[in-house]
Write a protein that binds this DNA or RNA. Sequence first.
DNA 1: TAACGACCTAGCCAAATGGCTAGGTAACGG
DNA 2: CCGTTACCTAGCCATTTGGCTAGGTCGTTA
Lengths: 213, 213
Amino acid sequence: MPNASTRIVIADRNVITRVGLRSILERNPGFAVIAEATSYDAVIDAVDEHGPDVLIIDLDLGDDTTRGLKVVEEVTERYPTTKVLVLANTLSEMIVVEALRRGANGYLCKDDVKADELGKGIKAIQDGETVLGKGVGNLVAHSLGSTRQTEHLTDREIDVIKHVAKGLSTKQSAVAMFISESTIKFHLQNASRKLGAHRRAEIVHRAAAAGLL
Amino acid sequence: MPNASTRIVIADRNVITRVGLRSILERNPGFAVIAEATSYDAVIDAVDEHGPDVLIIDLDLGDDTTRGLKVVEEVTERYPTTKVLVLANTLSEMIVVEALRRGANGYLCKDDVKADELGKGIKAIQDGETVLGKGVGNLVAHSLGSTRQTEHLTDREIDVIKHVAKGLSTKQSAVAMFISESTIKFHLQNASRKLGAHRRAEIVHRAAAAGLL
DNA sequence: TAACGACCTAGCCAAATGGCTAGGTAACGG
DNA sequence: CCGTTACCTAGCCATTTGGCTAGGTCGTTA
């Protein structure tokens, strides 16, 4: 009995999205959703267990945003035959670039995707194409155009930015973090450079847009 | 022929969410999704045409975030028998409070909602209850506890904040907006007071969290 | 071992910001 | 007509910030 169905695992913490995805995909008999996951660990477990053809994943499955990227990397490394399609709520250049760098085969934005694009996208991905949703391509192009590497912020830098975002001054942040004012300024200088920002308000804005706070 | 079904209109720009909602709701024969809308205007049209029992709406249906609040107000004023359930992506105290003040009968957060809570929530709303999802209640309580009114930012203040968020200085913002530096500082002072912030980074963060940018 | 990255600290100075007072205009609704 | 709101401008001054140079430790990795 030949099994022509594409076996799909869905990873999303949102039940509405999971049901919607399943419903849209299963309109096409060529697709079979064989498992759903709602946490990072569950994604790994599901892929381990089922070895699906396609993993559709929302990178934001918990508190730790960067964990989603690691999951993508792990899946694509350990299961080269499993294609990974990222389905994001928001568009962030850093996240897009990182996801693709770590082996994601597609990146769609939930709000922009049309019902028929999902099926087409999955088929294209299985044919070896890389599928980028509306607006995603521009981000990638922009990222390639800029010579600057996508330097990612360190944990400490993000900590400092969180304090600044709460309205704390350099001095107040220093007290709160038990380090000197110099160090606060040091981390912010580095974060500025990495983000291409020149003012704290912009640092906070970009970090927030990247889902880092 | 008695029609015992609850007639529901769904308003969400995201097709996955619409399909998911419809699928979850229609597991219960007591619910009938009679229309879907993907824009603010379409919501008004659909309510005008169908006069549904329940409107399930995501407030973010376009570029203008505050427009969603106006739609809630308009629907509850003109159709007192139509219950409004807000289904939000993110939780912002200002948006929650404003939505309820304008007549919303419930407020759930997509990521937190369980499949069975949707049906229960709709029934509760129809019984005259106000349904607040996980975490939403706390926000409301917090808002009631604070003596400060929910003063909303003016269009101009939001404009200025957007410039600041892009990393522009007072002077640069003034040039970009064709007004004096004093006016930039004036709007930011007012925004600070309204948001309870004391620094531009915090203003930007709060405004972003409230979905104003 | 050497190189590297992440982390921490110090000091300098020009520029930007926060917080304030004190005015002005125009539009709208009671 | 009056009050309210949004909007605009000016000036003052202490504090904060941006941008820079110039060091240091620690742990990992080549």
